[in-house]
Design a protein around this nucleic acid. Structure first.
Lengths: 345, 345
DNA sequence: TTGTACGCGTTATCAA
DNA sequence: TTGATAACGCGTACAA
């Protein structure tokens, strides 16, 4: 048996445990991995020595040998976005219970960064990648590197619109857009503006489809001067409002595709002396905590990030437990949405 | 030379690159690590083959051999807290530029989880750990495991109050508490309440010290009925307000040690028909985005999470670049705070 | 400046 | 049920 010498850092190895317990490293390894063929008594002996020596498994060595790092990569535009923070938290907590670490990476909504992160996660040999892509990501081929290496990819929220062998989990954005527009219509709005994102992104394409469906269904004309597609920032939304209210004909309702834009609209309306919701009704999207706090509080679309997180974990675990790497190109999973009624519409 | 056979996954190794470029694996490794003693021409040849084969370094193997994972562990109560999200983002972006990954872990403010995470990060052999501890963490000895193994630990925000060989980076909470109370006093408040956290945590101990200093300096008596120490949740703060306003003598100012409590106070005040800031002045802490959006907007204490993040990275890089493991028990670094004047006080 | 050979700590395979 | 031994892919001392 090889002699095991503690290094200066005092970190033990499986060899020390083997030596101290009078067993072989293989047996120690079996105990660590809950292998069935170990006598109860032996197991106890090993666990005692592990306890006594304060041994902790070296996951790096383990990962090299077993080709499993027990680490999941997660790429997200920014963790400060409420929706993503909520999804991440659920995913991380559940996966941790299953023995997985999560490496959370922010792309800062930069495509280049996203590409870099994919390479890094590949090098890190994560067991799978979960990703919500950049708004600019229309070509998703940089993720091929992962899938070719047998690393499963799950896209959520912002997902590719082309065919892919990755798993897709998305919100019901068509319905969300429909619910929002329909709600304003039910309240009597006849002149509805839409502040949306770029149509290259599935989110805004779908929400716009829902919006248009509601308008058409109710025979309400869509005024092109009131339709905006751009990055959904506070400043952009304000500029939209300024444009809108420069003209003589103004809307009586605004569908905003995120809450930041809804907040911008609300503040602008208050500034120019409009009474929300009497003169102008506003509806947002995402149920950001701020939407509940501003006055009047903003009616918005709840996306159930917890449900989405749980679904992601469920799908992921089922993929990881599969031994054979069958491609399961299934239909995208769709998470429901719901309108949260408040005082802005 | 050993024969290198591509496995079924198509992932190649340093051996494939060596073979394909007609060089030795050692040379390829040198190129990958920017070792100086490589001829320009050779280097180019290697890089070309790497490019051609689509080779990516296996960080797991590299980590095992070099004993450096290029990964930093980050433990934080919850990423959804604005302050932490901001710190994390800065830290992660900077470290990524330096070639480090960050493993973000949430303790969910559970001490047990924090202990587990320390063990996991140890097993993962991260190169260092950055931690903002749980509110319950008064004994920090579970971090000793890391430091004994030569893994440096940096505490920020919530830091141990006992002696430690870890690095400490904290906000100027004494000054923050002082600024808050002093501001209300300058505005004429004579009866000031304080909604604070548990004194077992340095944050609230310090803010309370600052609060008391301002009160004493201005000869304003502290009314014990108006002083609260508990977890700073919305509901707890509301209960405080209810207690306060049940009595005949009521305060004219409230210092809240986070913005959630300030928001709770503000909403309660509005509900019972108080005019903020005329009847009651309220000041919060942290400059949470919600504090700017609620009306009236809340005066609060800015903690400069960006500065804190940058400082953390700077200190960390200097530790990691040190070859010898000298213990540098230095004074805690203190990040400044500033009062942000709004309309609630 | 480049190549050879070994070992990092673990797990898988095979034999006992 | 346990043990011996060979990998996993890379970095580095040493040799050339």
């Amino acid at each position: 048996m090889k002699k095991a010498v503690k290094d200066k850092m005092g970190s033990n190895t499986i060899l020390h445990v083997a030596e101290a317990s009078g067993l072989s490293p293989a047996t120690v390894s079996r105990v660590m991995n809950n292998h069935p063929y170990v006598k109860e008594e032996t197991k106890k002996r090993v666990l005692d020595t592990i306890e006594k020596l304060g041994y902790h498994r070296n996951n790096v060595a383990s990962g090299l040998r077993s080709n499993k790092t027990k680490t999941i990569g997660l790429i997200v535009p920014r963790i400060s976005m409420f929706f993503h923070a909520a999804v991440i938290t659920v995913v991380q907590n559940h996966l941790y219970k299953q023995g997985y670490n999560v490496m959370i990476c922010q792309s800062n909504d930069s495509l280049q960064m996203e590409k870099d992160l994919v390479k890094t996660l590949h090098s890190t040999r994560v067991d799978a990648v979960i990703a919500a892509c950049t708004l600019q990501t229309t070509d998703f081929s940089h993720f091929d590197l992962l899938m070719k290496s047998g690393i499963p990819v799950i896209f959520y929220d912002r997902v590719p619109m082309q065919k892919t062998s990755a798993i897709l989990i998305k919100g019901d954005d068509v319905r969300g857009g429909y619910l929002a527009a329909n709600h304003l219509i039910e309240l009597g709005c006849k002149r509805i503006a839409h502040i949306s994102g770029l149509l290259s992104c599935n989110l805004y394409l779908d929400r716009t489809a829902g919006f248009e469906k509601a308008m058409k269904q109710n025979n309400i004309p869509v005024n092109k001067d009131w339709i905006f597609h751009h990055e959904l920032t506070y400043d952009n939304a304000r500029r939209d409002l300024e444009k809108i209210f420069k003209k003589s004909k103004v809307p009586d309702g605004i569908v905003a595709d995120n809450d930041t834009s809804a907040i911008a609209a609300l503040e602008y309306a208050k500034e120019i002396g409009l009474n929300v919701p009497v003169d102008l009704k506003i509806i947002g999207y995402s149920n950001d905590p701020r939407s509940a706090i501003i006055s009047p509080s903003i009616t918005t679309i709840e996306q159930y990030p917890d449900l989405m997180g749980e679904k992601i974990v469920k799908v992921l675990m089922s993929i990881l437990s599969r031994t054979n790497t069958e491609d399961v190109l299934q239909e995208p999973t769709v998470i429901p949405v719901q309108l949260i009624r408040r005082f802005s519409a």
